[in-house]
Design a protein around this nucleic acid. Structure first.
Length: 198
DNA sequence: TGCCAGGCCCTCTTTAGGGCCTT
């Protein structure tokens, strides 16, 4: 990966942990001061644990989060808007997320494929960077590698975890604090073309 | 009733199993 590669940090909030079937509720991405943040109404019910963790709830009149009404857009519009956001950079970019390999990347690419947008996505995204793998490679022997723990450990801060925008912003701050070498980043990066599809 | 995610990583391993990370 070139040292000047643009790394866009992103996060998903979904209806559950099963990457084969869960629906996206929120997609947020940040690059320096630029922010993408959209919500969509899921078709699938949230699992009990997802409701507890994220605070999202679907009612007859729409999406709510911790008692606040949340504006939503159709999933197709969310995806095309996200592609337009990515296209606004010097493409292709790298998309970074915590546990991207096992969660965010499989979910995102599955949904993009369902909307026949995967090929377009692969034109603007060269690969995924998994900051969970990166942190384990960089710092052996830590008592944990969850994003909340890492933020507390390296930045000395607590934050609003499970809000995708806050998670993406915190991940960017973590990465900037780590200043990993090019080889470290390469070891934790995988191609957008190498993902398994459902 | 019984099911309930799944794959990488580590080690008390390899003829295996449990912890971790994401929602």
């Amino acid at each position: 990966m070139a040292a000047d590669k643009i790394i866009v940090f992103f996060d998903l909030e979904t209806t559950g942990l099963d990457t084969a079937v869960c629906d996206i509720i929120q997609l947020a991405a940040v690059y320096r001061g630029r922010v993408f943040n959209e919500h969509t109404l899921p078709r699938r019910a949230l699992t009990t644990s997802a409701t507890q963790v994220t605070g999202f709830r679907v009612e007859s009149d729409g999406l709510w989060c911790h008692g606040d009404r949340v504006m939503t857009i159709p999933l197709a519009d969310l995806l095309t808007s996200f592609l337009a956001f990515l296209r606004s950079f010097r493409c292709p970019v790298v998309l970074a997320a915590h546990n991207a390999k096992r969660f965010d990347a499989p979910v995102l690419t599955r949904v993009l494929r369902q909307y026949s947008l995967l090929q377009e996505f692969q034109q603007v995204v060269s690969g995924f960077l998994d900051t969970f793998l990166l942190s384990k490679n960089l710092y052996r022997g830590l008592p944990g590698y969850s994003q909340q723990f890492l933020v507390s450990y390296f930045l000395g801060r607590s934050y609003n975890a499970h809000n995708a925008e806050d998670d993406a912003k915190m991940l960017q701050e973590l990465y900037e604090a780590w200043t990993p070498g090019e080889m470290d980043v390469l070891r934790a990066t995988f191609s957008a073309n190498s993902l398994y599809f459902y």
